[in-house]
Design a protein around this nucleic acid. Structure first.
Lengths: 232, 232
DNA sequence: ACAAAAGTGTTGTTCCTACACCCATGA
DNA sequence: TCATGGGTGTAGGAACAACACTTTTGT
């Protein structure tokens, strides 16, 4: 059943950059393409937007199809629409990015038949289309946004130690932070709840914290600005 | 000559939020619609994207058509694509925002037949479509981005006084800043060049400055982070 | 006892904040 | 001489940066 218009129209798609943190690395989820173009190349999960579906719903649908995950941090990134970015014709892609904690959501990375895998950021394959550009832009966004908004917590398990938090920031920012100062700074913000202690670790057990969303909302309304910038 | 596809496709448009600063106010440019839907209502300048035209080019085209201005700060804002946001059918709109200094570019606001005008932010008419949402989002972006990137300068004339700069920040942030501290902070950044003094003013003539783009680029590469956050 | 990571004390320096004051110009 | 913005001095306190040290656990 064909659809006819007076002027040519582009297709509209969504693509998702899904960041995940496991014990060792910050990773992203890629899908191996089954068909042309770029057959067998790795690509960001994505697909076309249904005609009566919102952009956000389309992106959430992709995210859930690929990871089974629903309630995670999730935000529109940028819209890529250069003519020629897709050999099949004019495709405009609205990119989203998501932050997933891999320890709590043991994402199988492929609920359907497609081949999917997590890749650490420093060991990526060649990507299809302009997906390297999209990815780069997502990394930039994450790097700059993580400094002045409490996004990092989205990548960690519900309960985490200050050591884990610091490690995460060091991975994202690519720097090394001073332990003493990082701790004092983060704790002084009063956005963490103590949640007991670690057990069964071969060193002094660390205090577990969880991010206090309510408290953060309250403080943010009063003008508090979350910020991590430290001696590199 | 009709265009036919196997699946229905949305139209893709761009809309521009054009901020301008004159002697008194921060304003935005609106166009009065000539046709249905929302006939005679005020709307953001915008239009459909040509099939072989990039999104940015389409937005720049709109910007230039409406203001005659080309070389100004200009950035993608967000993509709005809810079904139902346009009564004519599914229209996905990629929004851009621009910063224009009205004293240097005496924007006629309407090179073509359409009725166009500048509205101060606190005295806006009802807007067509979901343009109020777009505008709100642009204001948010400006408010938050102006704090950690030197955007403000784009709204001022080439040469400006620290007083003007401070006034601008106060307008955008909606707060009042301490003169002493604002000056020390901004000057310490070393991103301003002295450009002589005011003349013919009925008070002590102020030093004129201009924003030193090269110097800022250099500092930014070294990790310098521009930031304005002060006592409210 | 040792390794490993958690967690603390402290100090000099820089930046923030607040307030009061002086300066140069045209009317 | 006055009104009007431009521009400066300074002092107390908070935050930053750097480094060395103590603590608690499993092996």
């Amino acid at each position: 059943m064909p659809y006819t218009y007076d002027y040519p129209r582009p297709s509209v798609a969504v693509d998702c950059v899904i960041f995940g943190l496991d014990k060792t690395d910050l990773k992203i989820l890629l899908i191996q393409r089954g068909g042309e173009p770029f057959k067998n190349a790795w690509a960001l999960p994505g697909g076309f937007v249904d005609i009566d579906e919102s952009l956000e719903a389309a992106a959430l649908r992709e995210l859930e199809e690929e990871t089974g995950v629903k309630d995670v941090f999730f935000e529109q990134l940028f819209t890529f629409g250069n003519p020629g970015r897709d050999p099949r014709g004019r495709v405009i892609s609205v990119a989203y990015y998501a932050l997933v904690n891999l320890d709590e959501h043991p994402v199988q990375a492929a609920s359907d038949a497609k081949n999917a895998a997590w890749f650490p950021l420093n060991d990526l394959p060649e990507l299809a289309f302009d997906h390297d550009k999209i990815l780069k832009s997502a990394i930039n966004r994450l790097e700059s946004k993580v400094r002045y908004q409490p996004l990092g917590f989205e990548l960690l398990p519900e309960k985490f130690t200050l050591g884990q938090l610091q490690e995460l920031y060091e991975k994202i920012l690519g720097t090394t932070l001073n332990k003493r100062n990082f701790r004092t700074k983060v704790l002084k913000m009063n956005i963490l709840k103590e949640m007991g202690k670690q057990t069964d670790v071969a060193h002094r057990p660390a205090t577990l914290y969880s991010f206090d969303h309510e408290e953060y909302q309250k403080l943010a309304k009063e003008g508090f600005i979350f910020e991590i910038t430290m001696n590199r």
